[in-house]
């Protein structure tokens, strides 16, 4: 109960201040519709299936890109961590791509892959891949060599090393990478949808902006924020259960 209160008091306070400010006309309700108007609009949008349809489209792209990108990033990150020459070969490219705004690559990707979900998911996967690769490589590099030497001295071979040393030692770093990569995947998905997508939360936000539908605009932003929070909390919870030894709360 106390834990929930700690999470919720600030958002609740913001909503209350927003409602009061809009009701007293301190802010223009045309631009800032009060939460009491947004709630029925959200309910209607859920009832007619519009909001669920957009959320589903965004989640589909986010998870497709995340699974592809993070899966590959995990493998490449491990390779970079255990083989110095792999790191030297890939680091310049990864560093350059990491700092490049992914949305800036969209026109190029669309020229190669067309105006389809393949382009959108490819960009999401790229963002997840880079994040996961860097965190995984750091986690593998960060394993004290003494752990590995000790295990080898006790006769641990390939699989045993992986299971007993590499996995437990890198898991916290890998999980941090997963959490950040998922967040990055959602961000890129919504950004790509803003520019070019027939559905999705980003499309909903952009469409609302173009048609001056301010209630829908806020619903879209709230849905994106809610999804981000839910995904973050979901992975945090999974981390607590899967990696109890890290002691993360």
């Amino acid at each position: 109960m106390r834990r929930a209160a700690q999470y919720l008091w600030l958002p609740v306070l913001v909503v209350v201040i927003w409602q009061v400010a809009a009701s007293l006309r301190w802010i223009d309700p045309l631009f800032f519709p009060p939460p009491s108007e947004l709630a029925p609009a959200a309910a209607a949008s859920i009832r007619n299936g519009e909001l669920p349809r957009h959320i589903a489209a965004t989640l589909r792209r986010t998870f497709a890109g995340f699974v592809l990108g993070s899966g590959l990033g995990l493998l490449v990150g491990v390779a970079i961590g255990i083989r110095v020459w792999v790191g030297r070969s890939l680091s310049p490219l990864i560093a350059a791509l990491y700092t490049t705004p992914k949305l800036g690559l969209l026109p190029m990707v669309m020229l190669f892959l067309g105006v389809t979900d393949v382009s959108r998911i490819a960009l999401v996967a790229l963002g997840s891949f880079l994040m996961q690769t860097m965190h995984t490589a750091d986690a593998v590099r960060g394993i004290p060599t003494a752990y590995v030497d000790l295990a080898r001295n006790y006769g641990a071979g390939g699989m045993a090393l992986l299971r007993k040393v590499y996995l437990p030692a890198t898991a916290p770093g890998v999980f941090t990478g997963l959490r950040l990569a998922l967040g990055r995947a959602l961000m890129i998905t919504v950004a790509v949808e803003l520019v070019s997508a027939p559905e999705g939360i980003g499309h909903m936000i952009w469409m609302s902006w173009q048609t001056f539908a301010t209630r829908q605009l806020y619903l879209g932003v709230a849905a994106a924020a809610g999804l981000g929070a839910a995904l973050h909390l979901g992975l945090r919870t999974a981390e607590r259960h899967l990696l109890p030894w890290t002691g993360r709360r």
Partner: peptide
């Protein structure tokens, strides 16, 4: 555009 008529229709 929808934006123009919505802005006026919603009270702008």
């Amino acid at each position: 555009s929808a934006g123009l008529i919505n802005a006026i229709g919603q009270g702008s």
